[in-house]
């Protein structure tokens, strides 16, 4: 047996799949970042860090970069994503967004018309999310044959009083809620990708969730944990929750909101909608007794009209995420491996 049979690494270079938000992304972070950079604030690897300032106050701090191709797509563009994504990372940590930074990296040759449209979209999304862009930076790099624009936004927010969030609070009997139909964003992006393009009624769901979360927390429901299921989809979030809480999760396929158009697009591309990205959805864990209250609060909000109770937390061993299928069977739901690609098989 030669060494070529056993390689501990898939490649000695970074691959696109390392950016897919799945197993490979975790591996990259665990093997190349955490051994050198680690501390108590970073260690939970949450959507943002909680930084105490003084005895009874904390801020939440987060950052995210945006490299979507193409820059503009039905329902949004890279600018809207950059605002919503960072606002949502703050919001699901239980913070009220206070301000965002905006880092802009442009390639030589980027159309100023495109830039203007993206900046206008950033401004609109920031107004919608009621958060100001308070600092920024621009850089230009030589042309590299990409779409020509990358964005980074960092955000700070004030931790809302009264919300206590964390997988350590999750326990058997809690219920799992989705705020609306899944997979629209990722499938929309697929529909406009070169080599794959099809025409679709789908639109990206990119939206800032802070207001929906305010409504949810004002309802008085005991919300124990929240995530916005972006890369890796709801499967990634649920698998992560299961791993961190040590509890099993059972979800019911029949209850998962998804549009017929998204379902068919996923079928056509050979993708599992559970692993497809969303940019304006919330997965949350709520105490069972408060489920009705939480659902009502979400459904009364424009971004949560199709909110549904999709499953529950159980103490089944070993901890797994299981889907009860429409056909009456069960299957295990896992975090995807990396970038999910359209298949023919």
């Amino acid at each position: 047996m030669t060494a070529t049979h056993i390689s501990s690494r898939v490649s000695d270079r970074v691959m696109l799949a390392h950016g897919g938000g799945g197993e490979l992304t975790s591996e990259l972070i665990e093997a190349h970042f955490l051994p050198r950079i680690n501390n108590p604030a970073l260690a939970p690897l949450a959507d943002g860090a909680i930084v105490p300032i003084g005895s009874d106050q904390s801020v939440v701090f987060t950052t995210d970069s945006y490299v979507v191709t193409p820059l503009e797509f039905p329902g949004g563009d890279i600018g809207r994503l950059a605002v919503c994504g960072t606002v949502n990372d703050l919001a699901v940590m239980g913070a009220e967004p206070l301000g965002l930074s905006l880092g802009v990296i442009m390639e030589e040759g980027l159309s100023l018309d495109v830039l203007d449209r993206v900046v206008a979209s950033i401004a609109r999304a920031a107004r919608e999310a009621r958060v100001p862009i308070v600092t920024g930076d621009t850089k230009v790099i030589e042309r590299r044959g990409n779409e020509g624009l990358f964005l980074n936004t960092a955000g700070i927010g004030r931790l809302r009083p009264g919300l206590r969030l964390g997988t350590e609070r999750v326990e058997s009997g809690d219920v799992i809620l989705f705020s609306g139909r899944i997979a629209d964003h990722g499938l929309t992006i697929m529909s406009v990708r070169a080599g794959i393009a099809f025409d679709s009624d789908l639109r990206s769901d990119a939206a800032p969730l802070a207001d929906l979360i305010s409504a949810l927390s004002a309802s008085g429901a005991d919300v124990k944990f929240m995530r916005d299921p972006t890369r890796g989809g709801v499967a990634g979030v649920l698998a992560d929750m299961c791993l961190r809480s040590g509890y099993s999760i059972e979800i019911n396929e029949a209850a998962i909101p998804i549009s017929p158009t998204a379902r068919h697009a996923a079928e056509m591309l050979g993708l599992d909608p559970l692993t497809v990205a969303n940019e304006g959805k919330l997965v949350c864990v709520v105490r069972r007794e408060d489920a009705a209250k939480a659902i009502k609060a979400m459904q009364d909000h424009p971004l949560g009209r199709e909110a549904a109770i999709v499953g529950r937390v159980t103490d089944a061993e070993p901890p797994l995420v299981e889907l009860r299928t429409r056909a009456g069977g069960r299957r295990i739901v896992q975090r995807p491996y990396g970038e999910e690609l359209p298949r023919i098989c």
């Binding site: 889907l323 299928t325 056909a327 009456g328 069977g329 299957r331």
Partner: peptide, 8 residues
């Protein structure tokens, strides 16, 4: 697998 049919 996706339909969980093995359980049936």
């Amino acid at each position: 697998y996706r339909n969980g049919l093995r359980a049936l």
